[in-house]
């Protein structure tokens, strides 16, 4: 899939308009376990993304440091979400196989990262009203705002608005998000 200048995240956000309750996280488990495992899948995707970006040679040193830090934070999110799943009696999803096309240059790499981070932030927001368990909600919230910070940082590196939706961030449904990231999940 060509990523340069792509707008798969925008498509997902547009799809989010409508019935926000129509979430499709049941393939990851029932109720809150399904939601947490859905988030866990997205975190695995992000870790794989940052690992792939580490291979891009044309990034500035400071940017590389920032991306490495973000990747480490996504690893922490994985651990926290897996624990939250287990505390609800569920089984954390395993790491999916992912594949990212080689980024031709630094800008393409940052664009991909920005789109995925913005999408993941919207994905978390899309689930906040569906979670029942308070501890699970607290875990999702504590990650959600950090994903927003990652997205804003990448937008800033690209010279794009840090708040692309304006004063109120837009949610995205699981169906729309999974449709958008499907090309990167290969097994």
């Amino acid at each position: 899939m060509a990523l340069a200048g792509g707008s798969f995240a925008s498509a997902a956000l547009l799809s989010a308009c409508g019935d926000g309750a129509a979430v499709e996280t049941s393939r990851f488990g029932d109720g809150d376990v399904g939601i947490l495992n859905y988030a866990l899948t997205l975190e695995h995707l992000e870790v794989a993304l940052y690992a792939s970006l580490a291979k891009v040679g044309s990034l500035q040193s400071k940017t590389e440091t920032t991306l490495r830090k973000f990747g480490e934070e996504e690893e922490e999110h994985i651990a926290a979400l897996a624990l939250a799943v287990e505390r609800l009696g569920g089984e954390p999803v395993s790491k999916p196989k992912t594949e990212f096309p080689a980024a031709g240059n630094a800008e393409m790499a940052l664009k991909t990262a920005s789109e995925i981070e913005n999408l993941v932030a919207a994905a978390y927001l899309g689930q906040l009203s569906s979670i029942e368990n308070e501890a699970a909600l607290e875990a999702m919230l504590s990650i959600h705002s950090v994903e927003g910070q990652h997205a804003a940082t990448l937008n800033s590196l690209l010279g794009e608005p840090v708040t692309p939706d304006g004063a109120l961030a837009k949610p995205a449904t699981a169906e729309a998000v999974l449709g958008s990231v499907e090309p990167f999940l290969v097994g």
Partner: peptide
């Protein structure tokens, strides 16, 4: 939630 994400940004 929509507000807090923006505050984080």
């Amino acid at each position: 939630g929509a507000i807090v994400q923006v505050e984080g940004r």
